[in-house]
């Protein structure tokens, strides 16, 4: 893992090489605000917490995180630079992880820029700041899960737009798998174990648990496993597809 920081540095730098990163950050911050104050009725709820803020993150990330992830590998393959990267003395794992962590840190930086929300809520009342911290951790883990999926989809497609659409679709599947609608339609005929298994795959239930202020080891393990599995899939896909 000696080369991981080198890959990470280049990748993170490349986000800021174009105005795209700043545009993305602004869009995220504006949308997060709109969702919190209008859709989430932040003031009307009259409670000093950030539930209204965090509860929209799974939906906000559904479109924004695949936008960060889509270029990770698709661009390398399109421009042919993947041949350069893969013939440098860098292991597959270093490349996959370095790129993923760069995207994750970028998402984390963007998330941190929502700090005025924390100030606002502390000014207005006396919130449980512990719950806010776990909310941020949960949100970042959630972004990591989306990013790992996006990384794999980006490795699958040479075209960034296709990578984006694939990632949105796959992330959506991982959100709705916890929806009562879907689970109810299954529970009539499918064995309970399967219904539980599908429900346990969902981002939503895990994220909600963490953002309420409870960090359960199982939820943490869920995100770590999910990320690791999708990154392993990324490495395999790259091996299969790099020569195309």
């Amino acid at each position: 893992m000696k080369q991981l920081p080198v890959v990470f540095k280049r990748e993170l730098g490349s986000y800021f090489a174009t105005p795209l990163a700043y545009v993305f950050m602004v869009i995220f911050l504006v949308l997060a605000g709109v969702f919190t104050f209008y859709l989430g009725s932040f003031y009307e709820r009259g409670q000093a917490d950030l539930t209204a803020f965090f509860s929209f993150h799974p939906w906000l990330y559904l479109f924004l995180v695949p936008a960060i992830a889509m270029r990770l590998w698709a661009e390398e393959r399109k421009s042919g630079s993947i041949e350069l990267l893969m013939t440098l003395p860098i292991t597959r794992a270093e490349a996959v992880l370095g790129k993923f962590v760069a995207a994750w840190v970028f998402a984390g930086l963007t998330l941190l820029l929502t700090f005025p929300m924390v100030i606002t809520v502390n000014y207005l009342g006396e919130p449980d700041n512990g719950a806010i911290v776990t909310g941020y951790i949960g949100s970042w883990l959630l972004a990591g899960g989306y990013l790992a999926i996006g990384s794999c989809m980006s490795a699958l497609a040479k075209n960034q737009v296709i990578a984006f659409i694939l990632a949105v679709t796959m992330c959506f599947v991982f959100i709705v798998s916890g929806f009562p609608m879907l689970l109810d339609s299954l529970s009539g005929w499918a064995p309970q174990a399967l219904v539980d298994a599908i429900a346990s795959l969902s981002f939503l239930t895990r994220f909600e648990a963490i953002s309420k202020g409870v960090i359960d080891l199982r939820d943490l393990l869920y995100f770590v496993t999910l990320i690791a599995a999708w990154l392993a899939a990324t490495a395999i896909v790259i091996d299969l597809k790099k020569a195309d």
């Binding site: 280049r10 730098g13 490349s14 090489a17 174009t18 421009s79 042919g80 630079s81 041949e83 350069l84 013939t87």
Partner: peptide, 15 residues
């Protein structure tokens, strides 16, 4: 041990 110039000399264009 190798220095390699791939066909078409692909690079990171935005760097």
């Amino acid at each position: 041990q190798i220095g390699y110039l791939p066909e078409g000399a692909p690079c990171y264009g935005d760097m």
